[in-house]
Structures are given as structure tokens and as C-alpha cells.
């Protein structure tokens, strides 16, 4: 299975990532991806930017384990995970999880599970710039519920 995990300050191109996934996983007929971008508002307040902090070393390990778990559950031909760090602006790309499988069912499920696990297990933290300063984004209990559902 092709695997690429990147944590980077630089932007990424969806087109290039999907082309790479397709080329590198020749048996795959089904590709599914999720991508997340910086919102321009949160909790009814305008957001001027987002700073992403992470735990170097641990984040890479966690993402690697999340891909391992997806590969254990489904027959996958390729996975690309890209997550940005540092200062981002509204509209900027944050994350990409892309999966290649033989058929769509596996691709949809693996993509969703990896995002759910990434949300609760990967050591990233977001700090928003708002009109009167900054605030750390709070974890949502619904994310934990979604991730836990995969363990059932």
C-alpha cells in the first residue's frame, strides 16, 4: 500500500495529491478524500487567522498509527495524509486525507475513520485570531463520540 504522511507549513495542491495517489495505487478504482480549510468565523465571531501548533515526533507517530489502523480494517491501495502547521489565513488549506481502494465503500469508510481519529488523537492544537485577541479552539465532545464509535 502506498503511504505518504506530511506535516508541513507550506500549502498543498489537491490536484497534485490526488494525481499522486492515483499514480501510486494502480489497482485502485475508488478514490475518496476529505479536505479541511480555515473558516472565516467560529462561535459567532469573525476569525482573522489560525495558528496550528503540534508535537513534533508524536504527531507523525499518531498519524502513522491511524493509517495502520485503516489499512488493517480495509483493503486499501494508497493513503495520503497532509496536515499544515504554523500561521494560516481564512480559506487556507489545513488538512487532506485521501484514500485509494478498489471500490467506493472501503474508500468512504477509511477516509471517515481516519479523519475521526485524526481529530481526537493527532497532537495538533488550533489558536484563532479574533477581534480582541486570540483564543485556543476547544475540543468538541461530538468528535470524541464519532471516534469512539469506530471502536465499538
Amino acid at each position: 500500500m502506498y503511504r505518504s504522511i506530511l506535516i508541513q507549513a507550506e500549502d498543498f495542491s489537491l490536484d497534485s495529491a490526488l494525481a499522486e495517489l492515483k499514480t501510486q495505487s494502480g489497482l485502485a478504482g475508488g478514490l475518496c478524500f476529505f479536505t479541511g480549510a480555515v473558516r472565516n468565523s467560529n462561535l459567532d465571531e469573525a476569525v482573522g487567522g489560525l495558528y496550528l501548533e503540534h508535537y513534533p515526533g508524536m504527531t507523525e507517530r499518531q498519524l502513522d498509527q491511524i493509517v495502520d489502523e485503516a489499512a488493517r480494517r480495509w483493503q486499501l491501495h494508497g493513503v495520503i495524509v497532509i496536515h499544515r502547521i504554523g500561521q494560516l489565513m481564512p480559506g487556507d488549506n489545513i488538512v487532506l486525507v485521501a484514500v485509494a481502494a478498489s471500490h467506493r465503500g472501503e474508500a468512504f469508510e477509511a477516509c471517515e475513520m481516519m479523519m475521526d481519529y485524526l481529530k481526537t488523537n493527532a497532537t495538533f492544537w488550533k489558536k484563532e485570531s479574533i477581534s480582541d485577541g486570540h483564543r485556543w479552539v476547544e475540543a468538541r465532545s461530538s468528535d470524541q463520540t464519532k471516534a469512539t464509535a469506530w471502536d465499538a
Binding site: 503540534h54 508535537y55 508524536m58 485524526l118 481526537t120 497532537t123 485556543w136
Partner: peptide, 29 residues
């Protein structure tokens, strides 16, 4: 908490050479 870059609970062992980290719930993605 994490010990040697694995998430753990309060009962986990910390050795004299461990790398321990404390942090709020994660918010990536």
C-alpha cells in the same frame, strides 16, 4: 498526557529517562 509519545492515563509508568508531555485535548483537522 503522553509518555514517550504515546497517549496514556494517570496510572501509566514514567521511567527516569521518559519523555512526558501534558497538553489540552487536541483540536487538529
Amino acid at each position: 498526557a503522553a509518555v514517550d509519545q504515546e497517549m496514556v492515563d494517570d496510572l501509566a509508568t514514567v521511567s527516569v529517562a521518559s519523555e512526558v508531555a501534558f497538553f489540552p485535548p487536541v483540536t487538529g483537522g
